[in-house]
Amino acid sequence: MTFRDFRVPPFEVWNSPYNCAGLQPNTLCFSTKVRPSMSPFDFRTYQALTDLYRVHRFLGPDSVFPITQGNNALLEELTQFLREPSPSSGTQCSQTLRDALWMAAVSPEVHYNAFLTATSALIKNALANREYAQDLSWLWEDYSGHYRTSAPPVRAALMNGFERLRHHCLLPDDCRPSEEDLLTRDRTEAEEMLTPIARSMTPAEIECVAAADFGMDIEEHKSALFDLLNSPALAYPPNELRFPAEVIELVSHVQRHTGWLPSTAILLLDAVRTLDERSNAEFSFKRQWRGYSRLPAPARSAFHAAFRYLYEKNAFDPQFPNYHCFDRGNNVSLGWGG
């Protein structure tokens, strides 16, 4: 089966045209079964879907109108389809809309932004409806170079979308984005956003943070905090797991604690440098994601940029057993951090 023609066959493929080794089997299976979408909750796929949704918002209305070519009914359907994803359900599009999306997705020379939005919509449709996913491998083969020239948030959204398709065995293994393809920001940029917040810890906050371990070893923690804040790299001493890391972690888990904001920035600086080897960032996000989303813009952007760096480095996959409580007004996803 090939999808080289932008027209899409009237049936849909159930499961994957590729196995997890990236090989194409000789037969395809078909089903009319309705899939209970994204159950249990898959944070990484949900984040990818949310970022794909953001592509058209980033690019603006001019990236949407050329796809529908004046067809108001099609524009309404596309607008509904491009809504922010629900964590618990998928949204499918009609054959007519798929045809229009494919036409735009193979025509970067006609309207580049519409090409990017159409690609994001096709990936979104495949991820949200995985049992009926279309084969998008040839889009990767023919147009991955075009995706790499787009703005970093758009490029990362598309590349992480393709990566999730590969993860779900919906693309062959050789359709693999590079590590650089997947990053909205590199580590240095994330560090630069966190550092001013970390260095903002006041003497009064140092006193409170140093006493966070039930008042034990205050002087040792205080001295280590001063040394940390005055160091050029703002990094924990090598092989030192207690001073001041222990009190930094304790304070970062309690948002109302004095010194919480700079302590969290220090914790996230360590996490992006070590790819969260101690799972501190993942643990904190599971407990405090609502609080992070309500911070003033500079701190929210910096923290989300750090979490996003870990997510895009495949070092961040928080588990949410009560995923059913999420809705569009209760959004667990990470912002673009800008």
Rank of each mutant, 00 (worst) to 15 (best):
V272P: 03
Y323P: 00
K313E: 13
R4W: 12
H253K: 14
R155Q: 08
L250V: 13
V8M: 06
E219G: 09
S252L: 07
G90M: 04
W102H: 15
L228K: 05
L171Y: 05
E12Y: 12
R287P: 08
P232E: 03
A133Q: 01
G70K: 07
A198C: 04
A305D: 05
I266N: 02
Y292R: 09
A315K: 10
S94D: 10
S94K: 06
C93Q: 10
L158E: 00
D135G: 08
H304I: 04
F307T: 01
N71H: 11
A128E: 12
D276S: 07
V209Q: 02
S88W: 10
E249R: 14
S86H: 12
P25F: 07
H168C: 08
E109Q: 15
P203A: 07
A271K: 02
R130M: 07
W289Q: 04
R148Y: 04
D213W: 07
E109H: 15
M159L: 12
P321T: 07
S16D: 03
Y311M: 06
L234A: 05
D217N: 15
P238F: 12
D186C: 10
M159R: 01
D5R: 14
P196Q: 04
Q92T: 15
T45D: 04
T188K: 10
V8K: 08
A212C: 02
E12R: 15
F3T: 14
A128K: 00
D181L: 06
P85F: 02
L229I: 03
P40A: 09
S86Y: 13
T188N: 11
E277S: 15
F316P: 08
H304S: 08
Y147D: 02
S120P: 00
A306I: 02
N314Y: 11
N239T: 15
K33G: 10
T195V: 13
F65C: 09
N19Y: 08
E312W: 00
L97Q: 03
P108F: 03
C325G: 13
P203N: 07
L170Q: 08
F81L: 06
L250I: 15
W289T: 05
P40D: 11
A306R: 01
T117N: 07
L82Y: 05
D327Q: 12
T264V: 13
N26V: 12
V254N: 11
Y18F: 15
L127I: 02
A212E: 01
L241F: 15
L116Y: 00
W138T: 14
H56F: 07
A281L: 06
N129I: 08
N113H: 11
Q69I: 09
G161N: 00
T45N: 06
Y323S: 12
P232C: 08
S86W: 09
L74M: 09
